[in-house]
Each structure stands twice: as C-alpha cells, then as structure tokens.
Design a protein around this nucleic acid. Structure first.
Length: 206
DNA sequence: CGCATTTGACCCGCGC
DNA sequence: GCGCGGGTCAAATGCG
C-alpha cells in the first residue's frame, strides 16, 4: 500500500488539543446533524478541493480493488483535486467534500466525505471487525480497527442515509505509532492558542 | 500458509 | 424486568 500525501492521513489521525481540556463533549454524527451551527468546523484547517467530485460518479469506481493508494483513491473520489491541509491559511474554507466534523474529548472525530468508496486509504492499515445495520439508516455500518498491534484507534464507517454519495466516518482514538508515508502537520491557531496536530506525536522506538 | 474479511452470536447499556 | 439498539468477538472462509 504505501501511498503518500493524502490529507486523509491527517484526518485519520487528527488530534485536537484545546488550550485546556474539558471543552469537548462526546459527539457523534447525530450531534453533527442537530448541532451544526455550533459545531467545530475542521474545514478551517483541512481543506478539500472538491470541484469535480461529482465527476467521478457514474464511473466504475467500485470496480477498483478495495484497497488502493490514497492518491489513487483521492483521484477516484474527486477526480483529482482532493487534498490539502491548509496549515496556515484561513482564507477559503470548506468546499464541499468535507462537510462538517466534530472533535470530541477522547479524540473522536466524525465527518462526512463525499466518496463512492468507503474504504479510503488514510495511510493506516485497518482491519474490519464488525458490521452492523443501524436503526436510522438502511445502510450497514462497518467497524474497523487499526491493525497495528497496540494501537487503540477504531473507526466507524457508514453511508449517509440521506445522501448515499456521502460516507460518514468516525475516528476514535489517537494512533500510537507512525504510519509509513504519512505527512505530519502541526498547526497552531494563534488566536485561540490551540494546537491542531495531524499525525502522531509518539515516535516509534521511544 | 498466513492474513484479512465475513457474518452470526454474544454482551452491555439504556429506555420503557 | 424486558426489549431494543449498538458494539465487539470469534470461528469460518476466501484471497493473495
């Protein structure tokens, strides 16, 4: 697998450090929908250039092998322009793919991604350990766990019931290991003093 | 042959 | 106390 350079890496491992703990609550996708106005908007920090997203629809994306490099995946999803961490910019934000996400204490992140494939290669190796159909959605929900030994990170993937072209992904936990090919970013919002870290701060072998 | 995925069963917490 | 929904486990199967 390999693969480098996709923002998904960052997303998968995004850690959110409030200046002081205790401000996040445990929010999930349901919260996203009911609390959109007050939600923390990662789009401020992660920017997907959607643009052509719809262009890939109608194409046999699903025929592709379930595991592809992030770069490939990205291009299949958006048609090319998926990407970019705006680690310094605060200019344009949110262009569609990334709708809204919520960071909660305990490092739980939920966000919607416009994608036909649910298995986005975010740089980590995920092992599926469960599937479940949920009440509110006709679509099954899949449960993945980081296959790296000792890594507590879990992820939940399901399709948006309203709009099947979107995939709801929920990451839970912080990777305690590095992932090959991942680019790590650190951003500090000088205004709030918060640190936004995409990646893992725990070097292997330490 | 080894590993990841699949799928049903089991377990737990919550609400009624 | 019971039922429901959600989450995880684990044995079996398939694939590389």
């Amino acid at each position: 697998m390999a693969a480098v350079g996709a923002p998904l890496h960052a997303l998968a491992n995004m850690a959110y450090f409030p200046s002081q703990t205790g401000q996040g609550s445990d929010l999930t996708y349901d919260d996203l929908q009911s609390d959109q106005s007050a939600a923390f908007d990662l789009s401020d920090y992660i920017l997907f250039e959607e643009g052509l997203a719809p262009a890939s629809f109608g194409q046999p994306v699903n025929a592709v092998s379930p595991m592809v490099d992030a770069d490939q995946t990205a291009s299949q999803i958006s048609g090319s322009n998926l990407t970019t961490i705006s680690s310094s910019s605060s200019s344009t934000r949110r262009s569609g793919v990334l709708e809204r996400l919520r960071v909660a204490e305990g490092s739980r992140i939920a966000f919607r991604t416009k994608s036909e494939v649910e298995i986005l290669n975010d740089g980590f190796k995920w092992r599926k350990y469960g599937k479940k159909s949920v009440k509110n959605s006709p679509n099954p929900r899949n449960y993945y766990r980081c296959s790296t030994e000792g890594c507590p990170v879990k992820k939940r993937v399901e399709r948006d019931k309203e709009d099947p072209s979107y995939v709801i992904t929920t990451y839970e936990g912080i990777h305690n290991h590095m992932s090959p090919g991942v680019v790590y970013y650190t951003t500090k919002d000088t205004a709030s003093g918060r640190f936004y870290v995409a990646g893992c701060e725990l070097p292997p072998g330490s």
